[in-house]
Design a binder for these strands. Structure first.
Length: 472
RNA sequence: GCCGCCAUCGUCUAGGGGACUAGGACGCCGCCCUCUCACGGCGGUAACACGGGUUCGAAUCCCGUUGGCGGUACCA
């Protein structure tokens, strides 16, 4: 099997493109074949170096590698020109100055469902001659046969007046030259396929690609946003880079994206990349368009985070912080052992890498006292509870999680209050918020000095207000 | 407009004429667990777009309608 992923560098790699890349990659690895990366940059306006680099970066992040390329379509211009001339000489194509408006007029005269046929001229764009009779049938592994009657097809423009070739021509020749056996791409290309097949047929008539089989086509269902509309920035993370920046794991993204338009068939939802490679087949690809909905990705991502070992997760968190928050990265990087312990106590509470710092930043001195939290838990009773906590913790000989737990639990029992009446004031004093990792492990991680220091700070800060309170 | 693709819970999907009282996963709701938030456990909610056929029998096959999407560029 020889496959290709052929993005056009018009910007960041979108989810749809990423899925196309993944399916091609999965197929190549499943079959032991090769994956060719080709950059379709025949539109010089949009094809910038930066855009190409964005795509390569996205593929690298997704950990999808390729065996050949990247081949730049633009660099194959001499070859394209050569084939184009041959097609022109043999009469399979002709020059025509007809514009889009001319085509419109032609259709008004001959009927809307009648394909445009031009006259041969000296100058102008190059059009391929489509036979008047017959039809081109696209054999698609996913969709079955689709028949395109030649009478409905316009003679497609395959090269501009300046001789530079257009997409449908370049694709057909490049696939032929690269010996591509399977073309797997988005469904938006289904209507292009007969044009490419016709180019292929004309090239064959010239004796090109001797013995080569027509490629097997597979058109994947399109991906839409949660509202069923075309995927765009409106829908949150729509590109691979945005997914990475939102704190998703590449393996979770691969797993989730594989499930968009494909299923293992036995209700399996969580599939490692190895399993994906083992089980992926085109025959099981769905025909229905799918919507990209982040909620399930979040769930999967959390699951991958929870099952990862702590040191690996720590490395991922560090890399993520380095990418998104230089200050946090520096604080977390200063003490790797501390960071790993912070990761351990946060692991089951975060669904994305982005959630680590807001939850565990307090460990590194990052504290934002939320007024609402203080108001709710550091009132008269909270301060009173906090004094009790301080006294109890100050006496602790062994400042470990077990000792801390039994001390605080003892306090709860002794005061006959709900646990949260003790724990929440303490949590707010230590972290500034009402949400944090487990309180015992948080206290243990902070250590005695820092814990007491923060409690004292909270007492000093809130006590004056408490003093004015009336006895209740 | 024309050409084409598609149509099962809110979402991703299983389903290939009788095993469908339509299965799973996410989400949502409830209960349990519980120091917050989560995790976990248990239970629940929820779909065959519509109309005609074919057949003893249709979510499954055919036709039509409707809806969504794609193509219709000297874009890719």
């Amino acid at each position: 099997m020889r496959l290709r992923f052929a993005p056009s560098p018009t910007g960041a790699l979108h989810i749809g493109g990423a899925r196309t890349a993944l399916f091609n990659w999965l197929l190549a690895r499943h079959s032991g074949g090769q994956l060719v990366l080709r950059i379709e940059d025949t539109d010089k306006e949009r094809s910038t170096k930066e855009n190409v680099e964005q795509i390569l970066e996205a593929l690298r992040w997704l950990e999808l590698d390729w065996d050949e390329g990247p081949i730049f379509q633009s660099e194959r211009a001499p070859r394209h020109e050569q084939v184009l001339e041959a097609l022109l000489d043999a009469g399979h194509a002709y020059r025509s100055s007809a514009t889009a408006d001319d085509v419109k007029v032609y259709k008004q005269r001959h009927g809307a469902d009648c394909g445009f046929r031009g006259e041969q001229e000296k100058e102008g764009a190059v059009r391929l001659r489509v036979p008047d009779e017959g039809a081109t049938v696209v054999h698609d592994v996913i969709r079955g046969d689709t028949r395109f009657e030649h009478v409905h097809l316009d003679d497609p423009v395959i090269a501009r007046a300046d001789g530079s070739v257009l997409y449908n021509f370049a694709v057909a020749i490049d696939d032929l030259d690269a010996g591509i056996t399977h073309v797997v791409r988005g469904e938006d290309h289904l209507s292009n396929t007969p044009k490419q097949l016709l180019v292929l047929g004309a090239a064959r008539a010239l004796g090109l690609g001797e013995g080569a089989q027509e490629p097997v086509y597979a058109h994947l269902p399109l991906l839409h946003g949660p509202d069923g509309k075309k995927l765009s920035k409106r829908h949150g993370a729509a590109s691979v880079q945005e997914l990475r920046d939102a704190g998703y794991l590449a393996e979770a993204v691969r797993n989730y994206i594989a499930l968009l338009g494909w299923g293992a068939g036995d209700d399996a939802t969580v599939l490692s990349t190895e399993e994906l490679i083992k089980r992926f087949t085109l025959e099981r690809v769905s025909r229905n368009p799918a919507r990209f909905d982040e909620t399930k990705l979040r769930w999967l991502n959390g699951l991958y985070i929870r099952t990862m070992n702590a040191s690996e997760l720590t490395a991922r968190v560090q890399a993520y912080l380095a990418l998104t928050d230089a200050r946090a990265a520096q604080l977390a990087g200063a003490d790797p052992a501390l960071t790993q312990r912070a990761v351990e106590i946060s692991q089951e509470k975060i669904a994305t890498l982005a959630e680590f710092w807001p939850l565990a930043g307090f460990v590194f001195g990052e504290r934002l006292l939320k007024p609402a939290a203080a108001e709710r838990w550091l009132g008269v009773e909270g301060i009173e509870a906090l004094r009790g906590v301080r006294a109890a913790l100050a006496e602790l000989a062994e400042f470990d999680q077990v000792a801390i737990a039994s001390t605080l639990e003892g306090l709860v029992e002794q005061r006959a209050v709900k646990p949260r009446e003790i724990y929440q004031p303490l949590r707010v004093a230590l972290t500034g918020t009402t949400i944090s990792p487990g309180i015992f492990e948080s206290v243990a991680l902070l250590g005695p000095e820092e814990t007491l220091r923060r409690i004292d700070a909270a007492l000093n800060h809130c006590a004056p207000a408490a003093d004015t309170g009336v006895e209740s």
